[in-house]
Amino acid sequence: MVRQNLTKCCRLIVVHTAVLGLLMLAGIQVASAHGYIENPSSRALLCQQSINQDCGAVIWEPQSLEAPKGFPGPSIPDGQIASAGGVFPKLDEQSSTRWSKVPLSSGTQTFTWHLTARHATAKWHYYVTKPNWNPNEPLTRDQFELIPFYEQYDGGARPGEKVTHEVTIPERTGYHVILGVWDVADTANAFYNVIDVEFGNGNDTPPVDPSPQPPEPSPYPIWDATTVYLGGDRVLYEGRAYEARWWTLGEVPGSADVWRPL
């Protein structure tokens, strides 16, 4: 009787161990699906690199900004877009000076995700703040253009470690925030990354005058191989000024000792 009970007990332990192993394996598969935007560097990645300061625990895992998918629908609360619904709340602090900014230009750009674990993908989509957004207010849906400026459906395909997208960013100037979202195909979740961007010709950059300006006239004549030059004569050769030390004919400035660069 004791032997039978021991046999039953051992069988139960084996069964429970097998079930626990399957559950742990399933949990690992879900938890390992992580990634972040590597280029241009996301807010969380700049925290890990100590470029952004006072970021909280995200410095250890910028790849873990995971929350329910469905954006721009009711997936994560307004005011918690940067932190993926409050996962790392420090990331939701928002002002015009709070975060380091990545210089970028409007138009065609290459965005790169780094995936610490590959996961079947539904789609990738990107959003940018409106031209008149307020950088000193929390990030809400009202702050963003809710039509993605880039969207790619992967149909459940499993990506590689690096994923690149050729995107076209709408015209912007000054400080803006870009939101990139990676929707996972076989879970209910997505990964959210914001990027703080400084577009050219913003408040701190003087606009480029579109009208071409004529070049400044040179005070010296262009060097001529058929001209006799005397000591003290000055010429321009390949954009650089030279002075003759003595009489010369046909000796090329920059290649002969007779010419002294100015």
Score class of each variant (00 low, 15 high):
residue 211 S to P: 02
residue 77 P to K: 04
residue 73 G to T: 04
residue 220 Y to S: 07
residue 57 A to M: 09
residue 60 W to T: 15
residue 89 P to Q: 10
residue 68 P to W: 08
residue 33 A to F: 08
residue 17 T to M: 11
residue 156 G to D: 04
residue 189 N to T: 15
residue 222 I to D: 12
residue 98 R to N: 07
residue 116 T to F: 05
residue 254 G to Y: 00
residue 111 F to M: 13
residue 212 P to S: 07
residue 23 L to H: 10
residue 5 N to D: 10
residue 119 H to F: 11
residue 120 A to W: 00
residue 176 H to I: 10
residue 232 G to D: 06
residue 165 H to P: 08
residue 50 S to R: 09
residue 246 W to G: 09
residue 101 K to Y: 11
residue 158 R to T: 15
residue 37 I to V: 15
residue 37 I to R: 05
residue 255 S to F: 08
residue 257 D to Y: 02
residue 75 S to G: 01
residue 249 L to P: 03
residue 2 V to F: 05
residue 60 W to P: 00
residue 33 A to V: 11
residue 243 E to C: 02
residue 124 W to R: 15
residue 86 G to P: 08
residue 150 Y to F: 12
residue 32 S to C: 09
residue 60 W to A: 14
residue 114 H to V: 08
residue 28 I to V: 14
residue 203 N to Y: 08
residue 186 D to S: 12
residue 55 C to Y: 10
residue 85 G to L: 06
residue 211 S to R: 13
residue 37 I to P: 09
residue 75 S to C: 00
residue 248 T to A: 12
residue 94 Q to K: 08
residue 6 L to D: 13
residue 231 G to Q: 08
residue 178 I to M: 13
residue 122 A to S: 13
residue 153 Y to C: 00
residue 205 T to F: 02
residue 232 G to P: 02
residue 190 A to W: 07
residue 178 I to N: 08
residue 26 A to Q: 12
residue 123 K to R: 14
residue 87 V to H: 05
residue 180 G to N: 11
residue 220 Y to I: 05
residue 198 E to W: 10
residue 42 S to V: 02
residue 218 S to R: 05
residue 84 A to I: 06
residue 51 I to N: 01
residue 63 Q to I: 04
residue 260 R to D: 11
residue 235 V to A: 03
residue 5 N to G: 07
residue 99 W to C: 13
residue 103 P to V: 13
residue 35 G to E: 08
residue 8 K to I: 11
residue 88 F to G: 09
residue 253 P to R: 06
residue 80 Q to Y: 02
residue 53 Q to R: 09
residue 83 S to Q: 00
residue 104 L to G: 04
residue 38 E to D: 11
residue 17 T to Q: 12
residue 58 V to F: 09
residue 151 E to C: 00
residue 55 C to F: 06
residue 83 S to F: 01
residue 19 V to R: 01
residue 80 Q to V: 03
residue 213 Q to W: 02
residue 114 H to E: 08
residue 96 S to A: 14
residue 224 D to R: 15
residue 35 G to Q: 08
residue 19 V to C: 12
residue 171 E to K: 14
residue 31 A to V: 10
residue 128 V to F: 03
residue 257 D to W: 03
residue 172 R to V: 06
residue 53 Q to M: 05
residue 75 S to H: 02
residue 247 W to D: 06
residue 217 P to V: 04
residue 112 T to C: 01
residue 19 V to D: 01
residue 2 V to M: 08
residue 225 A to E: 15
residue 69 K to A: 09
residue 226 T to E: 14
residue 42 S to D: 07
residue 235 V to T: 01
residue 128 V to I: 15
residue 79 G to R: 01
residue 253 P to V: 05
residue 97 T to Y: 07
residue 260 R to Q: 15
residue 143 Q to T: 00
residue 15 V to C: 10
residue 161 E to L: 08
residue 151 E to I: 03
residue 45 L to S: 00
residue 51 I to S: 06
residue 31 A to D: 11
residue 222 I to S: 12
residue 7 T to H: 10
residue 100 S to F: 09
